[in-house]
């Protein structure tokens, strides 16, 4: 109904106000002890949440034999470069990363385009058949993707796409989640009067989409973009099924193959896992605010 900024700001101020009102009654010593305890627990949880990444980094800087030592090493070792070079000489990491990037960027671009077009039509217009078409979109949420996997694979075999990146890209160019998500956003934050005014000015459907809907949907598009990019980057089962050419693998498939062929070389294995994880963490930290806002808004509407 209204713009999203209003409820957001009230959501931010209300708990803080509630907390200070509650705290006023407690004695100051108890209050600060409680606050300290809460921060300690939260920090401990955050450390626990982050520890595996640190451990991954530590293991990637040691000789593989080092992890058989007791107690295990808790500080970084001096084999970072050796392990890095050993990964580079075993698999073509840069090619795998380029492939993953190509897949993720293409998929993200088309999901944003195709889903936002469909979402705009669903959100702002009524037309014959709309209810049934939207029901179809919602139903795909419930159906497990495995239902389509075998015929999709047969299709890729028929097309001769097995082993090629387009076999990973093309089936994921549209998603039900994006349509659902953006439709919510268009409904709540693009005012129908604006579109009506655009109609009077002689703007057709697609110019309304381009000039009215898309500019105001930037935060929603940003969240969907990060979400899709991360999902595509981490996608595993389908790429594992259709990619079999060693020179054309995504990072996840390359990693899993490295695990089966070099399962005991832990230093190298951890280095390759680290390489696969770091770019995504960077993307996430850049877009963290949009992503966090996005998650919380999706649940509330």
């Amino acid at each position: 109904m209204t713009t999203t900024s209003a409820p957001e700001s009230s959501r931010l101020t209300s708990p803080a106000a509630g907390v200070t009102a509650r705290r006023r009654r407690r004695p100051p010593v108890r209050r600060s002890v409680g606050r300290l305890l809460r921060h300690l627990l939260l920090a401990a949880g955050a450390l626990l949440s982050f520890f595996p990444f640190y451990w991954m980094f530590v293991l990637s800087t040691h000789r593989s034999a080092a992890i058989y030592e007791f107690p295990p090493p808790l500080l970084p070792g001096d084999r970072f470069r050796e392990n890095f070079e050993s990964v580079m000489s075993t698999i073509n990491v840069w090619a795998a990363m380029a492939n993953t990037l190509l897949v993720a960027v293409t998929v993200t671009f088309f999901v944003l385009l195709i889903d936002s077009l469909a979402a705009f039509a669903f959100a702002k217009f009524s037309f014959p058949g709309k209810r049934i078409l939207f029901l179809v979109v919602m139903l795909t949420f419930l159906l497990p993707s495995q239902l389509a996997t075998i015929p999709q694979f047969l299709m890729m075999t028929e097309l001769g796409w097995v082993g090629e990146l387009k076999a990973v890209i093309v089936p994921s160019l549209a998603g039900a989640f994006g349509v659902f998500w953006l439709r919510q956003f268009f409904q709540n934050s693009v005012r129908t009067e604006l579109i009506e005014a655009a109609t009077i000015d002689g703007c057709g459907f697609f110019r309304q989409y381009l000039h009215v809907a898309l500019p105001s949907a930037r935060p929603a598009l940003a969240f969907l973009g990060i979400f899709t990019f991360i999902g595509s980057w981490n996608d595993f089962m389908w790429p594992l099924i259709v990619l079999n050419d060693p020179s054309r693998l995504t990072l996840q498939v390359a990693l899993s193959q490295l695990q089966t062929t070099h399962g005991t070389d832990y230093g190298m294995l951890m280095m390759s896992a680290l390489i696969a994880v770091v770019p995504l963490i960077i993307v996430f930290i850049i877009g963290a605010k949009q992503f966090i806002d996005g998650i919380t808004e999706g649940a509330l509407k």
Partner: peptide, 26 residues
């Protein structure tokens, strides 16, 4: 806890965005 809340949020969310293959190996 209002202070550091963004830092906490990022720390708690990072596991969710990283690849399950890499984390499975770890």
């Amino acid at each position: 806890a209002v202070r550091f809340s963004t830092v906490y949020r990022v720390a708690y969310l990072v596991p969710n965005i990283t690849s399950l293959v890499a984390m499975g190996i770890l």
